[in-house]
Amino acid sequence: MRPLRPLLVLATSVATAVTLVGCADSGADTAVTSYVTETITRGSAEDPDQQEGNGDASEPATETGLSHTDAAKEAYAGILNDPGQYSFSAPGERDFTGEYLYALADITGDGVPELLLEAVTQHNLNPVRVFSADADGELTSPEDVLIDGAASAGGSRTALSTSPAGDRIYQEQWRSIAPEVEVEAFELRENNLVSTGETWTYDMQTPSADLVRIEFHPINDRGPLEAMEPTTGGAAAGGNAPGEAAPAPAGGNTASGTVRVLTAPELANLQGLDRTPNGEDSSYRYAVFVFDASTTFSAQSSGNAGAPEERQASMVRLGQQTPYSSDGSGFELDGQSLTLSFNPSSCWFPSDTSLPAGEPNCSAFTQQ
């Protein structure tokens, strides 16, 4: 197994509003540059198992009178209300759009999720900072970031996952044209995000019981924060334990249809809209899989605390290319009539007015 290129890079936080620091422009053929600041030695005196825990989330905080969960929710709301007070830095130049996403994931094993704040860039390899709140709502945030997103068609892809036990976070990295995914595990230790030294690779064609994919949401969608439940999307693609069968797609998520690459006005016209919902022009392009017939489709919903639900669907968005982000998934299949399967854990119904309006988007699929 070749050495993993970990994606832990240095960040800086400040107490007042600042301009976001630039990050690296990673093109389709440019590897993501990354730095690791610390690696855990198992069994050492600093092992997390020997450290004092964060306390029981059900216990009221001594100073605020709130439970750990409610104190964390209040602290996280303050971050989402003013995300610009935090800076993000990474190697080289990176153009930030001023948009942010967030996710919730328990990576300390105490039952209270951490907040992951993602700063969106024009190149869509986005730095993510981790915030953790103690029982009094006091925040800590490591001086490191992980990376989430996709560089361009055929380029680097990165994603974040957590463990089923909720005691660490994983950085995954792959390329859209290759099946091999590289994984590295990190733990939150006091005010540091450190590598555990665990690395491995897997084939992305089958789901994994060891990786639970973290899903990000727009910061104006406060449903996940109100629920204070991990925004995870089920098993990540790949890495089953030996002898473990991959779960079959469920909820009617196998369909026949045709892949079409359309501009935003063309897609709006296909859906019977007289205009694009957010003023998108022809610079916005989408790869959509249009079903031969409308079908019952199962996907996750942020309004349902991330749990899968079934709705009627006539198409699925596979990828999109916009002035602000690029995911080339499905573009190479333009015009092909196929039968595709989608695992509900890789699909989401929209919580906004993005195209295709009201239809699910899926980050992975299997060709039958």
Results as ranks from 00 to 15, higher is better:
S329A: 11
D29T: 11
H123G: 07
L117Q: 04
P224A: 09
D134Y: 08
R285F: 02
Q122D: 09
N304S: 09
A236N: 07
Y102W: 04
L333R: 10
S163A: 15
Q51V: 02
G197L: 02
A305I: 01
A71Y: 04
A119G: 13
S363M: 07
P83Y: 06
S337M: 08
P323G: 10
A246V: 01
A241N: 11
L117A: 03
V18R: 13
C347Q: 04
S337G: 01
I177M: 08
G303K: 07
V194G: 09
Q122F: 05
P142F: 01
T121H: 09
L66V: 00
Q271N: 07
T69R: 15
A72L: 06
G252D: 06
E38S: 09
G166I: 01
Q85S: 12
E190R: 13
E198Q: 14
A287Q: 09
L355Y: 02
D134P: 05
E143V: 04
S141C: 06
G335T: 05
A90P: 03
A268W: 07
F96Q: 07
A11I: 12
T366R: 12
M204Q: 15
T295M: 14
S354V: 09
E244Q: 14
D148L: 02
L139G: 08
R94Q: 11
G306D: 05
Y100L: 05
N304P: 06
S89A: 14
D274H: 12
G306S: 07
L7E: 11
N253H: 08
A307Q: 14
N191V: 04
L104W: 10
T258K: 14
S58K: 12
R94V: 07
A287F: 02
N278L: 15
I40M: 15
V21K: 14
D210L: 06
G223Y: 02
F289E: 11
T254V: 15
L270P: 03
T296V: 13
H68Q: 10
P113I: 03
A15Q: 14
A105Y: 09
Q312P: 02
G154K: 03
G243H: 07
S314D: 13
V36Q: 10
A246F: 07
L211S: 05
S44Q: 05
G53D: 15
F331K: 08
C23D: 11
S337H: 15
P247R: 03
F131E: 08
D82G: 04
L333K: 10
A11N: 12
T201V: 13
S67I: 04
D70W: 00
A119V: 01
R175M: 10
F186V: 05
P127A: 12
A313G: 06
G154S: 02
P83M: 00
E74T: 15
P350M: 08
P265R: 04
A245G: 00
F291W: 11
D95I: 10
G239W: 03
S161V: 07
P164K: 04
S208H: 09
A293Y: 01
T196G: 12
A24I: 00
V112I: 13
F88D: 06
R168G: 10
A57L: 13
D274V: 10
G137F: 07
V112W: 02
R317F: 01
T322G: 05
A305W: 01
L10M: 06
E180A: 11
T231D: 01
A357W: 04
S152E: 14
A255S: 08
P247C: 04
F291G: 03
R189N: 03
Q320H: 09
T97V: 09
